[in-house]
Write a protein that binds this DNA or RNA. Structure first.
Length: 585
RNA sequence: GGCGUCGUAGCCAAGUGGCUAAGGCAUCGGAUUGCAAAUCCGACAUCGUGGGUUCGACUCCCACCGACGCCUCCA
């Protein structure tokens, strides 16, 4: 691959022209294009964020996770990236929600912004530079509209201001439609518009609505204008990448282009990048879509089992609390961003099985080297691989996988293809540990090689925004379980040493209902799992084991069990109807 | 109706005009293990249907079938 070396050498800060290997799909041209920035070395990204009238759903996270990954990758490639995500905090639905809840629109917004931020943090979305709110950019918005009116691209009508679509010869180019083909009836404001396709830049305030002073009287901005005004303010009149869900192509982004390009007389955006939408199942529409909302608002007639609104889906925050953000992020990144993804908890859990392979490898690394995977510090730029090609076939293979990972990312951010290389790297590393029997003895050279392999995994995982820190355990940690398990393991080790495999196996099997798995290692057993109800299940297993031992007159085991539990403050009392356990504080 | 996207093994999912069609999950063998688990090795697809272009297509074109999105708020 001759391209790899030149790609590694390309320095966006120092070199002009397109990136030699990186391509990005552009919705406007409908093809992949070489990536070339507006300003040498710098990238401006604008992502349409949420309208914060309600709690976020999983669909709202696709764009942020994707663009967080894109920013990480571009930064890794040497670009100086500035990423903006806007918050729409003035809108009909917010006004409605405020009225229903008896609080102000700003309070509705604050509540939901908090929820949104928490969700982003949990998914490892940490790279957003600016979070502008529409209400905080009112001056820029009004100026923008005034400019359009002055130049004849917009007109006032009864306190509203509309964009005059007929004045924009390019209108429809993003969503590939003609003004004639627009079938809308113009909505409720049709009588105030020159054409049904015209859209509101400014809406006259109705009584009791939040409003701002403007040259056209009190009112508030239309939906699309804030993005034109805020992107101009923060990224300039022409910037590099504009993102959002595919459902925003029309009318939102079409209207943004119309406003900005008529106002500035130059292209607004170089690359329009749209992510695919999430669906619940093959026959359902997108998550959070109209069909879903209609179902939610429909009267509750559970009788027929219409659609799947019952199954305790819970909110996004609940999902994150249950699954953990890294699983969700990994799940989203497995699929190409422009694809539709069928979303379900089962699908997340299946993806999580693969993720566990990495977590086990991290533990294996710690076992061998006594070092913490999360403490490794990989190179942060593309040109600086930690691996130098040489005679070691394992390292050479690892570097080849690294190159393939980067090639996949270069190809329109193909995270799915990139993840495959991560698995290859894990396999290679496990095999290295296996072949060299590193768990038995590892000389410094072996450890050094192993560290290079693990560092590469950390480096590439970091680009995807994963493996940056230990994942939160699925259901929170449980102190008592942490104390209990060493006792269980010691008990089992004794049994194994005494070749009492019946007891050893009974312990391991008895742990399954608790969701706890034991893995025997030369260096001792390790356990994973747990979760809600695990402590009770483990205790019941121990109580059962003790009863069995006593019945078999194996008082040594029974007593050892009770004594060791007592040592950690857990007492077992034998009662007529069975044993009870309690914790002394 | 208009404009788009998509259809790859049991499931999820990359990718390519000709070289072994990635990877994950599941399954089945083998190594390893007291037995397991984990790990490693191996097995497992001719790419929706029908045509066309081509020396050659899963990859390009056409038609059809099916799914989904947008055309109204929407990540």
């Amino acid at each position: 691959m001759p391209a790899a070396s030149t790609a590694a050498l390309f320095d966006p800060a120092a070199s002009a022209g397109p990136h030699p290997t990186l391509t990005i799909y552009n919705t406007l041209s409908k093809k992949k294009e070489p990536f070339e920035t507006v300003t040498q070395g710098k990238v401006g990204i604008y992502l349409c964020g949420p309208t914060v009238y309600g709690k976020a759903h999983i669909g709202h996270m696709v764009g942020p996770v994707l663009f967080d990954t894109i920013k990480r990758y571009l930064t890794y490639c040497g670009y100086d990236v500035h990423w903006v995500v806007n918050i729409t905090d003035v809108d009909d639905k917010l006004i409605k929600a405020a009225a229903e809840q008896g609080i102000t629109m700003a309070e509705v917004a604050d509540l939901n912004i908090k929820d949104y931020d928490d969700n982003l943090a949990a998914l490892g979305v940490t790279e957003i530079d600016d979070f502008p709110k529409a209400t905080e950019c009112m001056g820029e918005i009004i100026d923008f509209i005034a400019g359009l009116v002055d130049e004849g691209f917009a007109y006032e009508s009864q306190g509203d201001v509309y964009f005059d679509v007929a004045k924009d010869s390019g209108y429809g180019k993003l969503s590939n439609r003609t003004v004639e083909a627009m079938q809308g009836d113009g909505g409720g404001a049709a009588d105030r518009k020159r054409s049904a396709a015209d859209f509101a830049l400014w809406k006259n305030a109705k009584a009791g609505e939040p409003s701002w002073d403007s040259p056209w009287g009190k009112g508030r901005p239309g939906w699309h204008i804030e993005c034109s005004a805020m992107s101009k303010k923060l990224l300039g009149e022409t910037f590099d990448i504009h993102g959002g869900g595919l459902d925003l192509v029309f009318p939102h982004h079409e209207n943004e282009i119309a406003q900005s390009e008529c106002r500035h007389g130059k292209p607004m955006v170089k690359y329009w990048a749209h992510n695919g939408l999430l669906r619940k199942d093959a026959a359902a529409g997108k998550i959070g879509g109209r069909a879903e909302r209609d179902a939610k608002e429909a009267p509750a007639d559970d009788a027929g089992g219409k659609m799947s609104r019952s199954k305790g889906a819970g909110g996004l925050a609940d999902l994150i609390a249950k699954q953990g953000g890294e699983r969700i992020r990994f799940f989203l990144l497995r699929t190409h961003y422009r694809s539709t993804v069928l979303f379900s908890e089962e699908a997340i859990e299946e993806a999580a099985v693969g993720l566990e392979t990495f977590y086990r490898l991290f533990k294996r690394f710690a076992r061998i080297t006594k070092a913490d995977f999360y403490g490794l510090t990989p190179p942060t730029s593309r040109g600086a691989s930690s691996i130098a090609l040489g005679d070691d076939p394992t390292l050479n293979a690892a570097e080849a996988h690294r190159e393939k990972f980067l090639t996949a990312m270069d190809d329109d951010f193909n995270t799915g293809g990139a993840i495959a290389e991560l698995f290859e790297l894990a396999r290679l590393t496990n095999k290295y540990c296996e072949d060299r029997k590193l768990e038995e003895s590892a000389d410094p050279a072996d450890v050094a090689t192993l560290e290079l392999l693990m560092t590469t995994i950390k480096e590439l995982g970091g680009i995807l925004g994963i493996f940056r820190q230990p994942p939160m355990s699925a259901a929170g940690s449980d102190d008592l379980l942490d104390k209990l398990m060493p006792v269980v393991i010691a008990l089992r080790a004794d049994a194994r040493a005494a070749k009492n495999f019946a007891i050893a196996d009974a312990i391991r099997d008895g742990l399954k209902p608790a969701g706890v798995t034991i893995e025997d290692r030369p260096s001792g057993a390790e356990w994973t799992g747990g979760g809600e109800g695990a402590v009770e299940a483990v205790m019941q297993m121990l109580i059962g084991l003790r009863a069995t031992s006593r019945a078999a007159k194996d008082f040594a085991t029974a007593d050892a069990l009770r004594d060791q539990l007592a040592a950690i403050g857990v007492t077992i009392e034998d009662r007529a109807g069975g044993a009870e356990w309690s914790v002394s504080s």
